[in-house]
Amino acid sequence: MQLIELKNVYKRYPNGVTALCDVNLNISKGEFVFVIGASGSGKSTLIKLLYRQERPTKGEVYVGGVNVAKLRNGKVYKLRRKLGIVFQDYKLLPKKTVFENVAFALEVYGLKKEEIRKKTLKAIEQVGLKDKTRSYPDELSGGEQQRVSIARAIVNNPKVLICDEPTGNLDPKTSMEIMKVIEAINEDLGTTIIMATHDEKIVNKMKKRVVIIENGMIAKDVMKGKYKNEGI
């Protein structure tokens, strides 16, 4: 079975907008997949279905063998513990230090303090922020904040790292640095990466699998894809 599997997925919002229409998608373990598309194409909806921010109107969404569509609200945390999620706006807790922000994802498991410390420092080191552990988010640059959120996403060794336009607020140079961090996670830890973006430079340079969404449907799904060649 595939790690992520979407079968005939439809999503229609209460206001009548159809965001996704008969989407079928398989992603296997260890893959690095870009999901690209114009604003309003449905790529954000697709990403949100994966971590059960939204439920599909019809169809099935399997993540690590769990049918996300049927997951009750009270049980969503079980799915999210298998995932790491990185957002465009970082979503860090402003009143917590870098260390506390990352450790927070582990505290929910009730691990021993020492274990939390070890794993947290390891994740912070992985993203290259070792000397900022005691800083608060507002003392960091955008790129650094995004690194913190990546560290938080990978600290519990998730099978899948979901990135929703992680470089959307960053300049090109910082974006490339972030991409290097994410690629290293894919290669070092074998974590499956799904990343929504519209940064064509990144997509062109990385030469990974590209899924193009247009009007709520998968227009193309190519390995080692390039942005421009697909005519968007």
């Binding site: 945390y77 999210r80 999620i85």
Partner: peptide, 16 residues
């Protein structure tokens, strides 16, 4: 609520 939202997203159970 942002704090609560983030707690949900990192896999904290409702009781937690």
């Amino acid at each position: 609520r942002r704090e609560i939202e983030i707690r949900r997203l990192v896999g904290a159970s409702n009781a937690f």
